[in-house]
């Protein structure tokens, strides 16, 4: 099965990858969107004072 990899996806904030699988006729059989990035804000915001979060969470996305 032929495969087209788009890595990275560009012109957006963040990291992304697309894998497209083509069947024998060259038609798209299936496609997968993947996010190869995680920073873990859900974890490291724990324990921070709530009044500090407006200075931490803007760094989830700065675009």
């Amino acid at each position: 099965m032929r495969r087209v990899t788009i890595d990275p996806i560009t012109r957006l904030e963040g990291h992304g990858k697309i894998e497209i699988f083509l069947d024998e006729a060259g038609e798209v059989a299936n496609a997968y969107f993947q996010v190869p990035e995680l920073r873990g804000f859900e974890r490291f915001c724990e324990g921070r004072p709530v009044e500090e979060l407006p200075r931490i969470t803007p760094r989830i996305c700065g675009v």
């Binding site: 995680l38 873990g40 859900e42 974890r43 490291f44 921070r48 931490i56 760094r59």
Partner: peptide
């Protein structure tokens, strides 16, 4: 800021 994740490890995150 992503470095704050060093309060945990891979499994913790």
């Amino acid at each position: 800021i992503p470095g704050l994740a060093n309060v945990a490890d891979r499994e913790g995150v």
